[in-house]
Structures are given as C-alpha cells and as structure tokens.
C-alpha cells in the first residue's frame, strides 16, 4: 500500500467475505459472513458486555454501573423531552439504536492498523444504516396508524395552514415525510465515510511525501500528520454526534406518530 500514488482511500470500505461465501444462503440470497458482519457482531458483543458490567444493580453504583445508568438516563430524558411520558415505551428501541451506532462508530475508529489489523466501520455502508433507518421509519408508520388510524394523515396538514395553501402544504409535508428514512440513513453513512476518507487521504500524504524525501516529508508530511491528529479528535466527536442525531431524529419522528403535531 505504501507505493507512491497507489493508496486507495476507498479500499477501507471494501467488504471481504470471511467464510460461508458459497453455501450460506437463505432463499437463494447469499448471507456470507464478511468483515462487515464480523464488526457488527463485535459491536453487539461489546455493547452487551458494557451493559453486563453495568448490571450489578447496587444501591451505590460503581463506575461501570454509573456509566450504563448514565446512558439509559440520557435516552430516558431524550424521549421524555421529545415525546413526553408516553415516550418511555420506546426507550429500549432508541437506546439500542443509539448505543449500537455509537459503539459501531467508535469501534470503527480504533487504530488497529498499528497491530496489523483493520477496523471496519459498517455504519459507513448505506446497506447497514438503511436497515436502521427503515426500521425507525416502519415503527413511526406502525405506531402512527395503530394509534390514530387514518387520522394520522392529518400530520400532513400542520396547524395554522391557510386555507388557500391547502393544495400545496400537504404535498410538501408528504415529500418531507417520505424523505425521512433516506435522510436518516444517508446522513450517518455519508458522515462516517467522509471522515474516514479524509483520514486516509491525509495519511497517504504523510506516507507519499515521506517516501519522496526528507524535505517533502517535513514540508507536507508533518503538517498533514498534525492535521490528522486534529481530525481524529473531530471524528470521535462526529461518531458521538451522528449516533445522537440518529436517536434524536428517531425520537422526534416517534413524537409525530404518538402526538401528531
């Protein structure tokens, strides 16, 4: 990879089958266990372990317990603020969503290249984020129609709509409603991918300029490396913010479904 000009910043997103490529299939669809699937499993297990360590259920919490309780309390407050008392029913789903995305984003940033391995960020694939987005959107639809029936369509006519705009507003509202799953899934995938590409491009600057000579290395490589350190910190922030945005928007959409406008 260190050959000049041969570093492909997109290579990190390539999915490589680990096993089960030929035989694993359901209804003719291949379900090979890939590096992406491996990191999904790692994320799920890490989250499970995090919660298990926080489940001592002591009156005076230890560090792990305090951490786990802080996270559940955070999601609890998020739903209480955005949906109200009825939001408590959706805490398990939004908590799973937030923590799964958060752990995936953070684990994907692990500098495993140092020990010759590679972290894979499956949230940089819209095939993965799309599943979560469609799940959230389906929950909104199911809850909305189950609670309000056809009255749910009044969502498309906000309060205070002037009568002479009744032909246009519902159409705009409908489009903005239908765009939700795409914006949910694409936002996360694009944010994660952009940050990882940026880091990869900067690291290729460091490597290529270093290979070109000490002068180039000092002139281009060192500033790029310093920039990478800053971008890495920024990426940690983005990892948290994107998980939060996903959870926040889901809770806002659930609020629409539960309380209409």
């Amino acid at each position: 990879m260190a050959e000049a000009g041969k570093i492909d910043p997109m290579h990190q997103f390539a999915i490589e089958p680990l096993f089960g490529t030929e035989h694993w299939a359901i209804g003719g669809y291949n379900i090979a266990f890939t590096n992406s699937a491996l990191w999904m499993v790692i994320t799920a297990v890490a989250l499970w372990a995090f919660m298990l360590l926080g489940m001592k259920r002591e009156l005076v919490p230890g560090r792990w317990q305090a951490a786990a309780e802080t996270m559940t309390g955070f999601i609890d407050n998020l739903l209480l603020a955005n949906v109200g008392p009825e939001g408590k029913r959706y805490v398990p789903y939004v908590f799973s969503l937030f923590m799964f995305i958060l752990f995936a984003n953070l684990l994907g940033l692990l500098p495993l290249g140092l020990i010759g391995s590679h972290a894979f960020t499956f949230t940089s694939h819209f095939t993965a984020t799309g599943v979560l987005a469609i799940l959230s959107f389906s929950i909104v639809l199911i809850v909305g129609f189950a609670r309000h029936g056809l009255h749910f369509f009044s969502l498309f006519v906000p309060h205070g709509t002037p009568v002479w705009l009744l032909w246009l507003i519902p159409f705009i509202e409908l489009v903005s409603f239908l765009v939700r799953p795409f914006s949910l899934g694409l936002r996360l995938f694009v944010a994660m991918m952009a940050g990882h590409i940026l880091l990869e491009v900067l690291s290729s600057f460091v490597i290529n300029s270093g290979n070109a000579g000490a002068g180039w290395g000092l002139m281009i490589g060192v500033p790029s490396f310093i920039l990478m350190i800053g971008i890495s910190a920024l990426e940690l922030l983005v990892a948290v913010i994107q998980a939060y945005v996903f959870a926040l928007l889901t809770s806002l959409y659930i609020n629409d479904a539960v309380n209409l406008h």
């Binding site: 999915i15 089958p17 359901i26 669809y29 291949n30 379900i31 090979a32 266990f33 890939t34 992406s36 699937a37 999904m40 499993v41 994320t43 799920a44 989250l47 499970w48 398990p92 789903y93 799973s96 923590m99 799964f100 499956f122 694939h125 095939t127 993965a128 599943v131 979560l132 799940l135």
Partner: peptide, 17 residues
C-alpha cells in the same frame, strides 16, 4: 453483498434490541 449486509444487520441489531 446487500443480502448479507441486511441479514447480519438484522441479526446483530435484533440481538441488541
């Protein structure tokens, strides 16, 4: 990869949920 991605996503997120 789409079928594998969706399948494993559902399995792992289902476990988490």
């Amino acid at each position: 990869v789409w079928s594998s991605q969706i399948f494993w996503m559902l399995v792992t997120f289902g476990f988490v949920f």
